[in-house]
């Protein structure tokens, strides 16, 4: 089934019947290897909507400012961040029309630029064909290997959304997902403290504090960010690997138990810092310690906003043990 066609028809009907005031989706721009967010209000504009393996961006970030009720195109993974916004009362269920799309996986940001088989200028289109990603170029068609997909797609358990108002792409509705696989986390855990410090300080020496990670994050909805506060100034604007790392730790900590590992921060980062590792680590601990998997049940309480008497003691605490 042609998802884009299916999506356009649904969007047009929703807008012309007045079920929603605006729809957030993806559109093509000047370049066949990038998609842009499209925020449309006119039924005629529905013709510009597409869904392809380049639909990387998590559009949930645009919900707060859109005219409500708003329809939003979500993949199974993006849906989890929307569920979190519902949990935290950032949006009412009645204000959002969930247009779920079944997704076979999306391409990594630089997958097309670094493929030795073709040049970016030769790309004509990128399409999904029966679960495989195909690039159509002026010199022929190429199938993309599995490792060209985003890390989260390769261990994805939410190909079909489990909560939606409209389902694009047909197939069976998804099931509520289990915890993700937290790829790459274990490798870092195995390092010695010194190696870990060196690794992270090296990575964060690239950071230019453009705040793309924060701005692109669908769950960073604070009106005033603690990183921007001047009194007290928790974090300076100075670029210094240690300061950069601490600035990120604050955000990581703040999203622990809420972050749904959508990978939007890492995707938005222009200098390629593996931010997902840090967020996945926090998510993994929350899951292991408190058995909580964020972004699944709209009625559940986020892990850090609650407690249980039988929570495990902190590993550092002697818990009454005599010295």
């Amino acid at each position: 089934m042609d998802k884009s066609k299916n999506l356009r028809e649904t969007a047009k009907t929703l807008l012309s019947e007045g079920a929603v005031k605006s729809i957030i989706g993806y559109k093509k721009g000047r370049f066949p290897f990038y998609l842009q967010p499209a925020i449309i209000k006119d039924p005629e504009e529905a013709a510009s909507l597409v869904f392809t393996p380049l639909s990387r961006q998590n559009l949930v970030s645009f919900i707060k400012k859109a005219a409500k009720p708003v329809g939003v195109v979500v993949k199974g993974c993006d849906l989890r961040s929307l569920v979190d916004l519902l949990q935290e009362h950032q949006i009412g269920r009645g204000d959002v029309r969930i247009i779920g799309v079944t997704c076979a996986g999306v391409l990594k940001g630089d997958a097309l630029e670094h493929d030795p088989r073709f040049k970016p200028a030769e790309i004509k289109d990128v399409v999904e064909d029966d679960g495989r990603i195909k690039v159509i170029t002026s010199s022929g068609e190429f199938e993309m290997p599995e490792d060209s997909m985003m890390e989260k797609c390769r261990s994805c358990s939410v190909h079909a959304p489990y909560l939606y108002d409209d389902l694009i792409g047909g197939g069976e509705p998804g099931k509520a997902p289990g915890p993700p696989a937290y790829p790459g986390v274990e490798e870092i855990e195995k390092m010695t403290p010194g190696e870990k410090r060196a690794f992270w300080l090296d990575m964060f020496s690239r950071c230019i504090r453009c705040n793309a990670c924060r701005q692109a994050c669908p769950l960073c909805f604070c009106e005033e960010c603690v990183m921007d506060e001047a009194k007290p100034r928790w974090v300076t604007a100075e670029v210094d690997p240690v300061e950069n790392l601490f600035a990120h730790l604050i955000r990581i900590y703040h999203s622990a138990g809420r972050c749904v590992s959508c990978g939007e921060c890492e995707r938005a980062c222009p200098v390629g810092i593996p931010l997902s590792l840090l967020y996945n680590k926090a998510a993994k601990e929350v899951n292991e310690l408190f058995g909580y998997n964020p972004g699944v049940d709209p009625e559940a309480q986020p892990a850090m906003l609650t407690y249980r008497l039988e929570d495990p003691e902190c590993k550092s605490c002697l818990g009454g043990r005599n010295l």
């Binding site: 842009q36 967010p37 499209a38 925020i39 970030s61 645009f62 400012k65 859109a66 230019i208 504090r209 453009c210 705040n211 793309a212 924060r214 701005q215 692109a216 100034r233 300076t236 604007a237 100075e238 938005a268 222009p270």
Partner: peptide
């Protein structure tokens, strides 16, 4: 309308070879 799809980060200006805005902080 042009601004609707923007996430309001600093990538465009921080990676621009010709951008020059700065702020001053006393630490």
């Amino acid at each position: 309308e042009e601004g609707e799809g923007c996430v309001s980060c600093g990538v465009c200006s921080f990676l621009c070879p010709a951008c020059q805005c700065f702020s001053v902080q006393d630490i």
